[in-house]
Amino acid sequence: MQDGCWPFHLFGANFATESEAKKFVFEQWEPEPPESVSEAEYISWEDRNPTWRLAEELGFSMDSDFVELAGTPQDVIAQIRSQSERALVSSRVGEFTHFIMVGSNAIWGDRRSTSTQVEPLVRLPESTATITYLGLFN
């Protein structure tokens, strides 16, 4: 990444508001219970949190530190090294209200795998009911 271009998976999506987009793209936490709750109630809260619709729909274990909701299509294009990849994104900007960038290093486990062993990823992300996979860039 010497030239400042990081490898990332790009998704396009259509959300009614920025708030709706953020609720999908980023982890969501319920308020932490007060110290007066029982240990069982606290453990239940831990088990429910966080929820993360993006990771759930994709079916991967992911690191949220490497997920970005792009401010504008130009923000995405500026981070792409290849002219042909830039042109591809430019040709599709009118189709989506939001773009989601997921670093290639953010995806570390396939929740669809039946193996109990840590294994390298064998499938690429794909489109879901909510987001459209546009490809791996850089």
Rank of each mutant, 00 (worst) to 15 (best):
I43P: 04
G103E: 07
Q74C: 07
G103W: 08
W29S: 04
I43G: 08
K23Y: 11
D63V: 15
P31G: 08
E56A: 09
F99K: 01
Q79M: 12
M62I: 06
T51K: 06
I80K: 00
S84D: 14
V89C: 01
E68N: 13
G103D: 07
S44C: 13
T51W: 07
E56K: 14
D65S: 15
V37T: 04
K22F: 12
T51F: 04
H98W: 09
Q79L: 10
G94C: 10
P73G: 06
I100G: 05
V93D: 00
E18Q: 12
G103C: 06
Q83N: 14
F26A: 02
A106Y: 06
A106G: 05
P34L: 03
D63E: 11
L88D: 12
E95H: 15
R92D: 09
W45A: 05
V89I: 05
D63F: 10
P31N: 07
L88G: 10
I80Q: 00
S61C: 15
F66I: 05
S84Y: 14
N105H: 15
D63I: 13
S38K: 04
F96V: 05
L54D: 03
G71A: 12
E46P: 09
V102L: 07
A21E: 02
R53A: 15
Q79G: 11
S19N: 15
R81G: 14
E18F: 11
F96K: 03
I80N: 02
H98L: 06
H98A: 06
Y42G: 02
G94A: 08
V102G: 00
V25S: 02
G59V: 03
T17W: 01
G103A: 08
T17S: 09
R48D: 07
P33V: 07
A87V: 11
E27V: 10
D110P: 02
P34R: 00
T97W: 01
G109T: 08
A21G: 05
I100L: 05
L88T: 09
T17A: 05
Q28N: 11
G94L: 08
D47A: 13
Q79Y: 07
A55K: 03
F96P: 00
F99N: 00
R81A: 12
A40R: 14
E46W: 13
V76W: 00
I100S: 00
G59C: 05
T17P: 06
D47I: 13
F99Y: 03
D65G: 12
